[in-house]
Amino acid sequence: MLSIKNLHASVEEKNIIKGLNLEVKPGEVHAIMGPNGAGKSTLGYVLSGRDGYEVSEGEAMLNGKDLLELDVEERAREGLFLAFQYPVEIPGVSNMEFMKESVNAMREERGEEPLSAAEFLKKAKEACKQVQLPLDFLKRGVNEGFSGGEKKRNEIMQMILLEPKLCILDESDSGLDVDALQVVADGVNSQRDGERSFIVVTHYQRLLDYIKPDFVHILADGKIVKSGDASLALEVEKSGYAFLGKAYEEVEA
């Protein structure tokens, strides 16, 4: 599914990702944990192709395609989905119009006919109910005036509608109470079908009680410094990142 080899990336000439390797196979859930500033969010931005994130070395392949050669929208159409830590508010563009346009862009990529307004509305209503957002959120401007939790749920709603191959969830748990966390996790779990893969970026082990990872990786100073199974997350929860030693101290400094 996703193969990252020796990835180096910088933002404003500051090296953030420094030789990252990661293999994600179909159906797998990988959690990436790590201290602040380790490059967790940067990884999502680099893979999605955000402007200003320069890759100087290495490769990232999605199902055999060189992601780094593609434009942002092409990566999305190849099945890459990034759930934002801070979803963007777009007043003036309705959530409905926004999602219909993106769903139809995906359909076009797959050679399918665009959905009619009525067909899309039906799907959107189902997804909206699934993440427990009131239906009038479909009519509102994209994320406009949504609370933090509502924005996160809106991201999951988009994920459900877009049916991506690989989902990167960037701190989708941050700022959520237990109920909202459950909704987000249920949304994600409903999309686990043995084929779709997930990279769950999080600070806290808590989310991983709800979304069971196959692998847990610790990202520090732009590299994966430790990998293990779900028990690694519990270890981090218990004793923090102290085991990272010097690398961690540098990051914090």
Partner: peptide
């Protein structure tokens, strides 16, 4: 906002 829309597959 433009980047956000592009990540959803919408053309530039």
């Amino acid at each position: 906002a433009l980047y956000y829309m592009l990540t959803r597959g919408i053309s530039r």
